[in-house]
């Protein structure tokens, strides 16, 4: 009974699937078992609905422009991007850009926060899309299977910042470089230009954040004034830039902290340069 209903529901949803997106998902080089799952819970038969639903936002709302997608290899890679825009639309847009523009199409394995698995509905859907719990061991396993992981080394420091600090890279974590050393995966620096302006936060209400347990509670011209509507992002144009893969040689255990920091700085400065290039060449925030 349940599965008959579920099949009918899927059949009804089938009309919403973009042929283009489905074709790209089928070509993702992720190994699946006889039920169409990868061990982390990715399933193209479910993912196709979710990415198809997000695709119009990618194409018509944010009108994402991708540059340098040819730098994304077909095997293990760590994509390290700047994080911004209060709500993580940038993660979804980079994931779509990797899926739609890279050759072969790459599935961005995003890293979910620790509280995420306790969330009903969203947690399994994110898994079906290819996201995993952000844990170094998950990264190691994924890279061992030649997957592409997407990391935001600034974390909350980046996404929660105000418009006064737009495009200033915050402190980077070092875990992604250690992973690169351990697994031999190259790092592809990635810059997202445009997301900073989608929700121009003028300040954070720290006491409220502490009270609610959210990492930050922003104040924008529209939020909280317009209520939940104020959470809609502005129709900015996204520009996503990928740079050449950087290979770091060395052994994770014997590499000193100073060398790791130096490697992080190299990646950070590449992303910085990509952002500067994007800012200089763009004609406007919305065009």
């Amino acid at each position: 009974m349940f599965f008959k209903l579920s099949d009918a529901f899927h059949a009804a949803l089938d009309r919403t699937v973009s042929a283009e997106v489905e074709d790209r998902i089928r070509r993702v080089p992720t190994k699946l078992n006889e039920y169409g799952f990868d061990p982390f819970g990715f399933n193209p038969d479910v993912a196709k609905y979710l990415y198809s639903a997000a695709y119009p936002i990618y194409k018509h709302y944010f009108r994402v422009e991708t540059h340098g997608a040819e730098h994304l290899p077909g095997d293990r890679v760590i994509v390290a991007a700047n994080h911004s825009g209060v709500l993580p639309w940038d993660g979804l847009m980079v994931a779509l850009s990797m899926l739609m523009e890279a050759d072969p199409p790459r599935l961005a394995r995003g890293m979910a926060e620790r509280w995420f698995p306790t969330l009903p509905v969203f947690s399994p859907l994110m898994q079906r899309m290819g996201h995993v719990l952000g844990d170094p061991q998950n990264c190691r396993e994924l890279l061992g299977r030649d997957e592409a992981i997407l990391v935001f080394p600034e974390g909350v420091r980046g996404i929660g910042k105000t418009i006064w600090e737009a495009y200033e890279l915050q402190e980077f974590g070092t875990g992604f470089v250690r992973l690169a050393l351990e697994t031999g995966a190259p790092i592809v620096p990635c810059a997202v230009v445009g997301a900073e302006e989608q929700m121009p936060s003028v300040g954070n209400v720290t006491p409220l954040a502490r009270l609610t347990g959210f990492p930050y509670v922003p104040v924008t011209p529209f939020f909280p004034a317009l209520g939940p509507l104020g959470l809609l992002p502005l129709p900015v144009r996204y520009r996503v830039y990928y740079d050449e893969p950087i290979h770091f040689d060395g052994d994770a255990r014997s590499t000193s902290d100073e060398d790791v920091d130096r490697a992080v700085e190299i990646v950070k400065s590449k992303i910085h340069r990509l952002i500067q290039y994007g800012l200089e060449t763009r004609e406007g925030v919305f065009s």
Binding site: K31, L32, D146
Partner: peptide, 19 residues
């Protein structure tokens, strides 16, 4: 073309394991 089927864990050069 459909994605390759998997019949075992980790392929290619294995990632160093937790000792």
């Amino acid at each position: 073309m459909s994605p390759a089927r998997d019949d075992g864990p980790a392929t290619r050069s294995p990632v160093p394991e937790v000792s």
